[in-house]
Design a protein around this nucleic acid. Structure first.
Lengths: 218, 218
DNA sequence: GTCTATAATGGGATAGAC
DNA sequence: GTCTATCCCATTATAGAC
């Protein structure tokens, strides 16, 4: 096109291309934002730091995200989108409990390993009592947890797993898998390494699966 | 005493009494500080809020704690003092593994229930990578965890519990018990109550003990 | 869409009277 | 030890030129 001169460097096409470009920039910003929020908390994170890491000015960042709170909520939205997509189809009451539990633990641990910042941002929000995001947790996370707990209870009613407190079983699975993101700094100190290795996550998977299956006797 | 006039209202005696008074005030400040840090994170917490809740001016607070960072480190010191005192004598290789594990889980869960703010302040620091307190964790917490892990390993070597990865067993116990403080907001949402009850902690204890004992087959 | 400049606020910290 | 007053800085956010 002849009128390309007034467009940004990488915008070579029409509106589709422009949208793609904007999306790419937003993705860069969000990728840095989740890290900075995880490392410093909401108040401790500064727009300037996020902008600098994403390679633009803070005023320019605020052109894309008009306020810090909107950026933060978008970060949490994306965290939940990713996590819910991974965990959604796992609990099916007709599958073998053993296989479902293995898959569930595996998926949750994989999330902790692949998206530790996402896990940590979410954890920080929950620990603080979810002041900015409680409604979303109530509407999006809690129903999913309850659905999974209901599946556990159906298994118990059908005698397919040992009778345990399904709710606290879910809390236990959540806690153990989540901690490999949230407490990895302390774990690395105990294990005397700079950071957790793939082998550590495999050992974790073995241990957590072993504990859960032993508890429900399958 | 006749010279009481120039002293603070509650100071009725000599230096011993004055010290007691100062200690009392520091304790009030620290009690509020741990809550405010837990609810807002280090950066999100303001000296003014802590001072207001403790019933004094922020300038007056800074007479007792010259800087925010010193106050924060004192809070974490006290958290560790309390926690380490509760957990210290528990792991004795000569006792019955079953009893030691029960006592350990019980003590850690009790700490989550009685000192949720302490748990959360510590968790926030670890999640953020322990930027201000890593050295203390390395020097005070990690050795204790390693000692307990070593006891587990001696039990395994002696055939007193099933062969498991002792380190990850410890991580699992830590994660499950810790989460009843850190994630209680989310748990309360799932359970549809304003906050966790004593009964919830009892159910938690049952579940965690059941999982750990099943995993090590005792 | 990106830049310079700047407003406006909040919070940590200090000075000095009493 | 406590108070009033104030400084100083970081940070969010906006205005307006280009």
């Amino acid at each position: 096109m002849a009128s390309d001169k007034s467009s940004p460097p990488s915008m070579k096409n029409a509106s589709g291309r422009r949208l793609q470009n904007r999306d790419r920039l937003e993705a860069d910003i969000l990728e840095q934002a989740v890290r900075v929020f995880a490392e410093n908390g909401y108040e401790g994170a500064s727009i300037a730091t996020i902008a600098e890491r994403a390679g633009l000015s803070k005023q320019n960042l605020m052109y894309y995200f008009p306020s810090k709170q909107l950026l933060y909520q978008r970060v949490l939205d994306d965290v939940l989108d990713d996590w819910l997509a991974r965990m959604d189809m796992l609990a099916n009451e007709h599958d073998e409990p053993r296989d479902v539990l293995r898959a569930y633990i595996g998926a949750k641990l994989r999330f902790s390993r692949e998206q530790p910042w996402a896990s940590r941002v979410y954890a920080l929000e929950v620990i603080n009592g979810a002041p900015l995001y409680g409604a979303q947790i109530r509407d999006r996370v809690v129903p999913l947890l309850r659905k999974d707990i209901a599946v556990f209870e159906q298994w118990i009613a059908a005698g397919r797993i040992a009778p345990v407190n399904a709710t606290h079983l879910m809390f236990a699975i959540w806690a153990m898998t989540q901690s490999y993101a949230d407490f990895s700094a302390q774990m690395a100190l105990v294990l005397d390494r700079k950071e957790l290795t793939r082998k550590d996550y495999e050992d974790a998977d073995t241990m957590v699966v072993q504990m859960v299956l032993a508890a429900v006797k399958v």
